[in-house]
Computed example of a mutant assay.
Amino acid sequence: MEDQRPGPGAQIAGLIFAVLLLDPDLVVREANPAAEDLLHRSAKRLVGAKLLDVLELDDARVAMRLREADARLTVRGMTLRCGARATQVNLTVSPLASHPGWRVMTISEVGQGEMAELPGEETTLRAPAILAHEIKNPLAAIRGAGQLVARKLEEKDRPLAAMISDEVDRIARLVDRMQRLGSERADPVAPVNLHVAVRSAIATVRTAGDSDVELVEEFDPSLPPVLASRDALEQVLINLISNARDACAGAASPRVTIRTRFASGLVSNLKLGRAVRLPIEITVSDNGPGIEPALCDHVFEPFVTSKASGQGLGLALVRKLVRDMDGRIGHQRDERAGLTHFRIHLPLAKNEGEQA
């Protein structure tokens, strides 16, 4: 077994975050597959290129520190640009004591590895379902009592009884969402035509109410079917598109763009203990003001919302449904472009069960 252990090269190649080996002149000398995926360049194009020609950092202090050969760096939540694309990342730089001037840089997208269950998270997700179960029985009794009372009231007082029933129904709908959030049962997955699901979700959002927000489709028509639950995927997209529409409603020219594309690479599904290929990307972007900074790291948590009338369950449910499909979801803000992006990555139907 000792001889079968993977060597350092195989271990680095299997990492889900980008690793770059930099020489004293900040020239890239090695790049793992995750770096190719994150920076959208092949290893052949990366190796031999100067680091700051490949990527642009939004913080001049980081670029200055990189020029110090023995500097150690840890940066969180920094915007990195590679070509036209901006990504929010965490970055580290570690000098190699055995080789003066040489450094190892790691880059990971903010939220990468989010599919791992954190200690206590499973309990947190089940808590709403347990609470919902305890609430439902008394709710039914309140509603029944309200209906009985309404029959004995004078006409002028019946709106008060109707209000009781309406509020009970509203709470019941909230309880149903709480139960779904805590459910351990995932919808079965099957090959799904991605663009049929996206267009169905867009049609639902358009039908839901009048809005001046422009909904724009930017699809790659060549994409093959994804492995997903059609109903769950549509629900995810309806929530994201509706949120994006609400977020940019106050903009001068409100616009939501739904984009699909093929994104190569591996993203680890740590919950299942294996690497799952997630090459299909769906991005919902809006030109609203963005998420409040205090909420950025918590938007997928239950009961977190910036909406005055929101319950904070929509994005928590979205994350659960995406995870149930072995997918991944994250968000980022591109201040230069004035856009907020929510990105979903899903597996291909033909690659079901494929191992890295």
Rank of each mutant, 00 (worst) to 15 (best):
I258N: 07
P279G: 06
A251M: 12
N287A: 05
S285I: 07
A249Y: 07
A247K: 13
A263Q: 13
S253V: 12
P254T: 08
I280G: 07
T257P: 00
T260A: 13
T283V: 15
A247N: 15
G265A: 08
P254L: 05
A247P: 07
P279R: 05
R261E: 13
N287W: 01
R277V: 03
G273A: 01
T257H: 04
A252R: 14
S253T: 15
G273C: 05
V256S: 10
V284E: 08
I258V: 15
I280F: 13
G273N: 02
N269D: 10
S268H: 14
N287D: 09
D246H: 07
R261C: 09
R274W: 01
S268W: 12
T260C: 12
R277D: 01
G273R: 01
A251T: 11
A252S: 14
T257Y: 04
R255F: 06
S268P: 00
T283H: 04
P254C: 08
G250C: 01
V284P: 10
V284G: 10
R259V: 00
T257R: 15
V284D: 10
R261W: 03
T260H: 12
A263W: 07
V267M: 05
L266V: 14
A249P: 00
T283I: 15
L278Y: 05
L266Y: 08
I282F: 07
S285G: 06
A252T: 13
V284H: 11
A263G: 06
G273K: 03
A252L: 14
E281S: 07
V276D: 01
A263N: 11
S253F: 11
R274Q: 12
S285T: 15
D286M: 04
A252N: 11
V284C: 14
S253R: 13
I282Y: 05
N269Q: 01
T283R: 13
L266N: 08
P254H: 04
R255Q: 12
L272K: 07
R274K: 13
G250N: 14
L278N: 06
R261K: 14
R259Q: 06
A249L: 14
R261F: 05
A275K: 15
G273S: 00
G265K: 07
E281N: 02
V267I: 01
S285L: 14
V256E: 10
N287Q: 03
I280W: 11
D286V: 06
T260S: 15
S264G: 13
A275F: 08
S264H: 15
I258E: 03
G250F: 09
V256H: 10
S253Y: 10
A251H: 11
L272V: 00
E281H: 05
L270P: 00
R274H: 10
L270D: 03
D286R: 08
R245L: 04
